[in-house]
């Protein structure tokens, strides 16, 4: 029963997401963008509501609102409010308005839980196409701009002296996160999508010696956690998002404990 068409669709979609989320998540960890990930994810809920209200495709509504949030945060950063305050206002406002809009538009068929926690039964062939296109776009962007992104992450000043514009690199990363969030929301859900970015990268940190090593390891860990999580979700008939994130978190706990054990017993 496990190996039916739904499962394979979800698996192919999940692996596409994980391959992009792993390396991109490293930048989210290095640059402390986790809260920004939440803000775009919450904006995506608003996007779902808007798409239903205007009778357009959910994927369009989600990508427009997530990108809009990214641009808004980019433009408002550094204008008085601390970044975490700004994100706190933006993220929770978007979620509140999004949930209200979903309920008030009165779409009887809409299952709010599916967008908050993910629902793999939602994944269509078209979704798989969009997810893989998005994943390849993010992957290509990271490979193409890797050196500039990394230099700007290490130091704005150092980057500027090399002719790199740190603000442009920051914007590229914010848009990439918005795109990843938009394409993952159906599988993982808005409330947990940031975990898919942060946990594999955080797990890879203790095992890696270079940024490239951490990015590759993070991709492997994300794919493993997504695959195991989806198997669990199907076997136990639970939502996919929590199953994937719980698997990922278990991996994080195990490597952290192993690291602590090594430090105390081997030096």
């Amino acid at each position: 029963m496990i190996f039916d068409a739904f499962f394979f669709s979800a698996l192919v979609a999940g692996i596409g997401i994980a391959l992009a989320a792993g390396p991109l998540g490293c930048f989210v960890v290095w640059r402390r963008m986790a809260y920004f990930g939440d803000a775009t994810a919450h904006a995506a809920i608003l996007g779902v509501a808007l798409a239903l209200a205007f009778d357009s495709a959910v994927s369009v509504g989600v990508i427009v609102s997530a990108t809009g949030m990214a641009l808004a945060v980019f433009l408002l950063t550094g204008r008085g409010l601390a970044v975490d305050t700004l994100l706190g206002v933006a993220a929770h406002s978007a979620l509140a308005f999004g949930v209200l809009a979903l309920v008030l538009t009165g779409e009887r068929g809409i299952n709010l839980e599916a967008y908050l926690f993910g629902d793999i039964l939602n994944v269509s062939m078209q979704d798989i196409g969009l997810i893989w296109a998005g994943a390849m776009l993010i992957g290509g962007l990271l490979v193409w701009r890797w050196s500039s992104l990394l230099t700007a992450t290490v130091s704005d000043d150092l980057a500027r002296a090399e002719g790199i514009q740190p603000a442009r690199e920051r914007l590229i990363l914010m848009l990439a996160v918005a795109l990843l969030v938009a394409m993952s929301i159906e599988v993982v859900g808005a409330l947990l999508v940031t975990a898919l970015l942060v946990i594999p990268a955080a797990t890879a940190r203790s095992l890696a010696r270079t940024p490239e090593g951490m990015a590759k390891l993070s991709a492997i860990l994300a794919v493993t956690a997504t695959s195991l999580g989806l198997i669990a979700a199907f076997a136990l008939d639970v939502p996919a998002g929590p199953a994937i994130v719980a698997t990922s978190a278990t991996g994080f706990a195990i490597t952290t404990l192993m690291g602590a054990f090594k430090r105390t017993h081997l030096g």
Partner: peptide
């Protein structure tokens, strides 16, 4: 530059 702070999360 003035001394840099390299974030602990970046290997």
């Amino acid at each position: 530059p003035q001394t840099l702070h390299i974030d602990q999360t970046l290997p």
